[in-house]
Amino acid sequence: MDRPELGLQQLHAFTVLAAELHFGRAAERLGIAQPPLSQQIRRLETRVGHPLFTRGPGGVGLTPAGQELLPAARRALDGIADGLDAARRTGSGEVGRLRIGFSASLALTVLPGLLRAHREQYPGVELELRELTTAPQLVALREQAIDVGLLREPPAGADAPGLATATVLTEELVAVLPAAHPLAARRAVPVAGLADDPFVLLPREAGPTVHERILRLCREEGFEPRLGQRAVEWQTVAALVGAGLGVSIAPAGIRRIRIGGVAYRRLEAGPARAAPGTVVAAAWRRDDPGPLVARFLRLAGVRPE
């Protein structure tokens, strides 16, 4: 034999009546007439198989079965309320887990302030950080291993397939020199002055676009940079320059890396040309601008479509 379904309305009506012990007052508190309240209670008693309330000249009281059900009913209603609140907060991006990929050099510029602002505004969101260069970040986004990326110089076509990018900031490029280098005595260095030095650079596969930007900058000044050493991270680039293994051109944030024997100098802009710079961008999946990602992007100054 089928048993009547147990509904949240019945449990709510039961707990209110148990608190008021008066059908009229309970119905008024629930905002319904007394007959529908009586029907809710009868359905619940049918489901339980025993009376939950005594009804008589002395008023309404809880039966032993009602006394047993009351704490469980309150826990169930509280659990539903907590679940609904958690779902609302998750849906609005107030809680959850956000997986962020970032290029290591951004830990020297935009990343710390962005993370601090996010923690202050959304303390219920757990941040999972993954240090990745540009190309691996794009792969991780497509494979849904991260939710949003902060990368340097997204390559042309990074928006496809399925990805969107937007500029967060443009950062100046600087010369990275051994402290004993003759040009280290100058406040600004001409790019052409580095033509005879070996270069320490990130490999192309780590950041194709920034790699090509540096090469193009040198070519515009009439020389092809001679590769001396490769390094995957800008911190390593600075260390190798400090060891006297060459010079480099790098984002200005590298100046925060304090390594003995290294000098950072501005690059002189060529005639009728702005000072060389590099783009920092945010990247995300076009089909996944959920609230966690959207709120992070807005803090970075980006408004997803």
Rank of each mutant, 00 (worst) to 15 (best):
R99Y: 11
G83Q: 06
R97T: 15
L84R: 15
V110K: 03
L115I: 07
T90S: 13
S92A: 13
A87C: 08
A72C: 09
T109K: 06
D82Y: 12
L108K: 06
A73L: 00
S92G: 09
S92Y: 09
A81M: 08
D85N: 12
R75P: 08
E94R: 08
R99H: 11
A117P: 09
L77R: 00
F102C: 10
A76W: 03
L106P: 01
G96R: 01
D82P: 07
F102I: 11
R97S: 12
L114W: 04
L106S: 01
G96Q: 04
A86H: 12
F102H: 13
G79K: 10
G91K: 03
A117T: 15
I100T: 06
G101E: 00
S103L: 07
F102R: 12
A73S: 02
G113Q: 05
G113C: 06
L106F: 02
L108I: 10
L77Y: 02
T90V: 11
A73Q: 00
D82K: 15
R75S: 14
D85Y: 08
I80F: 14
A107L: 15
G93F: 03
R116D: 13
D78P: 08
G113V: 07
A76H: 03
A72L: 15
A76L: 04
D85M: 13
G91W: 02
L77D: 00
S92P: 05
R89I: 07
S92W: 10
L98H: 00
G113I: 10
T90G: 14
L115T: 04
T90N: 11
D85G: 10
A104Q: 12
L84A: 14
A87N: 10
V110Y: 04
A104G: 08
V110W: 01
E94L: 11
E94C: 07
S105P: 05
R74L: 08
A107C: 13
I80K: 14
G83H: 03
L114I: 06
A73P: 02
L114S: 01
L111I: 11
L84S: 11
G79F: 03
V95D: 03
A81K: 09
A81I: 10
R97D: 08
F102A: 13
L115N: 00
A86L: 13
L77V: 04
R99T: 07
R97K: 14
S92I: 09
A72M: 12
L98I: 05
L106G: 01
V95Q: 02
R97H: 11
L108N: 05
I80W: 12
V95H: 02
R97I: 14
A76R: 02
L84H: 13
G83A: 07
S92Q: 13
R99S: 14
A104W: 06
S105C: 09
P112L: 06
A73R: 00
A117N: 14
A72P: 07
R97N: 09
A81L: 10
A87S: 13
L114N: 00
L115P: 00
R88S: 08
R99G: 10
A76M: 06
L77H: 02
R75M: 13
L84N: 10
L98F: 05
